[in-house]
Design a binder for these strands. Structure first.
Length: 261
DNA sequence: ATGGTTGTTCCACAA
């Protein structure tokens, strides 16, 4: 079972790129972030034509998450528990072929020192609580998305440039590690501990892509049951080099199916 | 220290 995560930075602006990539890579599930449209404006028909059923949670202009799947999508959750007043569309979760899958768009948190950073840390604390609850079922859990977290200096081309940024501050990394310490695995780094230049995001500005000035902020966190089933996890840089590219590129995860020894 | 780019929306904001 192949599950991909991709911050598409507007599903409508990116539609041709996304459809092309789905045709080439054929993931069973695509988790999207920053769809940047209201739910009703999601291009459901174009995904259906490619074979994908979509569950989307959108809002006007900003944020928005979705799950596209070749297989039936069950038991959809559209909120991260812990703050009923939070109206930002950043979390959707469902069960597909027995795997509990979430598409996560964790707050960016910049500028530091504003309510935006407080919101980020509060959101991470809520995610930790919910991630802990998900472990209790002892099922495969796959939490994929744009975490807006640079876990380590090795995950940035120029770590110095990020050290005071909301994506890399010690408090951000501590909150990230709290989730790992529950029993989740950052599966890409676990499988590729020494890999350099493993980035998922390159800024549009200042020729960052050309200079490979990237960061790794799109991640898969896996429960033990999902980590045990993992066949491979890789970053596909190809979409970032295309015309009209998102500033993020997809990460692919492949789980062994039950039948496979 | 600043400016560099993209998307959406409405002339600014988020990233």
């Amino acid at each position: 079972m192949k599950i991909a995560t991709w911050n598409v930075n507007s599903v409508r602006a990116r539609l041709p790129n996304i459809v092309e990539w789905l045709g080439q890579m054929k993931p069973d599930v695509l988790l999207m972030q920053e769809i940047k449209c209201e739910t009703a404006a999601f291009p459901f028909m174009e995904f259906k034509a490619a074979g994908y059923e979509v569950r989307a949670l959108g809002q006007k202009s900003y944020n928005g998450v979705a799950i596209a799947s070749l297989y039936p999508v069950e038991d959809v959750r559209e909120t991260l528990p812990g703050d009923d007043a939070d109206a930002q569309a950043r979390y959707i979760e469902a069960t597909i072929k027995g795997v509990r899958v979430a598409s996560i768009y964790l707050p960016n948190g910049n500028p530091v020192g504003t309510e935006k950073y407080d919101y980020k840390l509060a959101w991470m604390a809520r995610l930790k609580n919910h991630a802990a609850a998900l472990l209790r079922d002892e099922r495969p859990v796959v939490l994929g998305g744009d975490y807006n977290v640079i876990p380590d200096t090795a995950d940035a081309h120029n770590p110095k440039a990020w050290e005071n940024d909301a994506l890399a501050l010690p408090a951000t990394r501590a909150a990230w590690r709290e989730i790992l310490h529950l029993g989740y695995t950052d599966i890409f780094r676990a499988l590729h501990p020494d890999k350099q230049n493993a980035y998922t995001y390159w800024d549009y500005q200042a020729g960052a892509w050309m200079r490979d000035d990237g960061i790794r902020i799109d991640h898969f966190l896996l429960s033990p049951e999902a980590a045990d089933k993992t066949k491979q996890c890789f970053i596909d840089r190809t979409p970032r080099g295309k015309d009209k590219a998102s500033d993020h590129t997809p990460v692919m995860l492949e789980l062994l199916s039950k039948e496979t020894p």
